[in-house]
Design a protein around this nucleic acid. Structure first.
Lengths: 197, 197
DNA sequence: CCTACCGATCGGTAGG
DNA sequence: CCTACCGATCGGTAGG
């Protein structure tokens, strides 16, 4: 006989994430989450405070993972072009490699109650500011030509976010290929036009 | 005494769209929609078949508007660069100028029942194919350098979709400014690197 | 961890 | 266009 592993909050969160991604937060019932981990709905309340708590936990984890990856990318040294490349690659890698997290993290913001909602929005704002900082640094160093750094950072972030919606691990592109291509597109988008001659 | 304008399906759809954008399809009740147009929930059923019908109508209208705008942009002649510019501008203009439609159109796909869901997905696929066609045409003509046209079209589409989420009419940028800047970014993303010398 | 259940909500219909 | 209401669903609690 194999001993069953005790139910853990982590396992419940993972199941909830899956369901939130597939049907949406509002369409997912606690009975659904319970069924996914082999118990009835009410039994979940030993491990979890509420359905809303489950959503908050999932979304905070996602933003922390993104911020960590971004910090690592930015902290590895190099000039603005290389740092931007690493940041975009990390961004895309996460959205292709953790589609459920990224998808839920972007679609369910409106279902977050306060103060969690503002907390997540603040983390997203910080994430965007860091990317924009590298863009401005590159502009000041003359390696990027950007009139509106904010529009550029929004564009780069949003095209990466989109990856979570269409990427398929068994599709024609690998995560690394998409990450590399998107970083390239971002750099080209920011690069100065060739000088007239 | 001013005669009240009779309730029309169009007015109900407009109110529903607003609520779907603000709270989400699932969180919006027919009583909410009714209140927004001055009647009780049940009275809506004189004009509307179901809540789902309201969502379908809103999303089909959105995709038809986008496809119309894209057709107009593509049909105005010019080379691939100019046609791409016009298509991106139309795309961004719609997402900045019709934020609720675009936002709902992108977030509520999962709440569409069949066969409406497949119908919308087919319209989206056609929309993407047309953009990709111009990119490939430009590549074949040597004015664009793209290894993966599909990744490029996804990127351009997704960065435009993002506009619906952050754009504010009273913000620092006008619709036209964002449309122009995004078209520029798209073109730069696709342009060949300057030749070595 | 389960069953029973409360209280509230909701889409849609009946009948006027 | 309204009230009354049905049937179903759901998050969470009680009590074991």
């Amino acid at each position: 006989m194999i001993s069953e592993p005790g139910l853990e909050a982590t396992e419940i969160r993972r199941a909830a994430l899956r369901l939130f991604a597939d049907r949406g937060y509002r369409a997912t019932t606690m009975a659904d989450v319970g069924a996914a981990v082999g118990v009835r709905g009410p039994s979940l309340y030993r491990h979890v405070r509420s359905k809303q708590d489950l959503l908050v936990a999932v979304m905070v984890e996602t933003m922390e993972a993104l911020l960590d990856a971004q910090r690592a990318a930015a902290g590895a040294g190099g000039g603005p072009v290389l740092r931007l490349r690493r940041m975009v690659e990390a961004h895309v890698r996460y959205h292709a490699g953790h589609r459920d997290q990224a998808f839920v993290g972007n679609r369910e913001i409106g279902n977050l109650e306060q103060p969690a909602r503002d907390r997540i929005l603040a983390m997203r704002a910080a994430y965007e500011r860091t990317l924009r900082g590298v863009i401005e640094e590159g502009r000041d160093a003359g390696v990027f030509a950007v009139e509106h750094p904010r529009l550029a950072s929004y564009s780069i972030l949003d095209m990466g976010i989109g990856v979570a919606a269409w990427f398929r691990p068994d599709g024609p592109h690998s995560v690394e290929q998409v990450a590399y291509t998107y970083a390239d597109q971002a750099i080209r988008m920011l690069s100065p036009a060739p000088p007239e001659r």
